[in-house]
């Protein structure tokens, strides 16, 4: 907008303030109006409510594992052998890309429970394979050990341990 008419100093100030105030209020209003359109893409109330899964453990024998589903993702539940536990515990954690003690990753050493999603780009790793006899992700070659920690390959972090609790000796609630 161009105005060539001379206006006294005071008038200019008042006008500018008015324009800025109106523009500011308009901008704030627009920002608030946009929020619902963004928020609607977040998980809805019913999705959030389905945040836990209960799994029975008594059928899982030592040295085997099952894959449960929690929040649409695979969760590996492994009944580890003595050898696997020992292998996981004796590693010098300072040599690890993502240092974490095995004891911090399990509540009960016999049971290793973790989200079966490779921390690289989201593929599902294969059990009992790879250079460390843990898990191996076939997509881009990440090797995990018997505690699910990243040892070799492009993945940046250990397999994630979900929140869980043992409701009894044979029942675990994930989430």
């Amino acid at each position: 907008m161009t105005t060539t008419t001379p206006i006294e100093e005071d008038g200019v100030k008042r006008r500018d303030f008015l324009y800025i105030a109106a523009g500011g209020v308009g901008a704030v209003g627009t920002a608030f109006a946009i929020w619902p359109f963004v928020a609607q893409m977040n998980p809805s109330a019913d999705v959030l409510a389905l945040s836990s899964t209960e799994v029975e453990l008594d059928a899982i024998e030592e040295g085997s594992e099952i894959t449960a589903v929690w929040q649409g993702k695979p969760v590996f539940i492994r009944h580890r052998t003595k050898a696997e536990i020992a292998a996981a515990e004796e590693v010098d954690i300072s040599t690890l890309p993502d240092p974490e003690a095995d004891a911090d990753r399990v509540e009960n050493p016999e049971w290793l429970i973790m989200v079966g999603v490779c921390t690289h780009l989201g593929c599902v790793p294969l059990k009992e394979s790879g250079d460390f006899n843990g898990w191996f992700c076939p997509c881009h070659g990440s090797h995990y050990d018997t505690s699910g920690r990243i040892r070799k390959g492009p993945a940046p972090a250990n397999l994630v341990v979900p929140p869980y609790e043992f409701l009894s000796a044979t029942t675990v609630k994930i989430g």
Binding site: W35, P36, A39, Q40, S44, D46
Partner: peptide, 13 residues
Amino acid sequence: EHIMRDVNYGWLL
């Protein structure tokens, strides 16, 4: 009804 009850701001939209 899912939109009206569960989706964030679904009732508004």
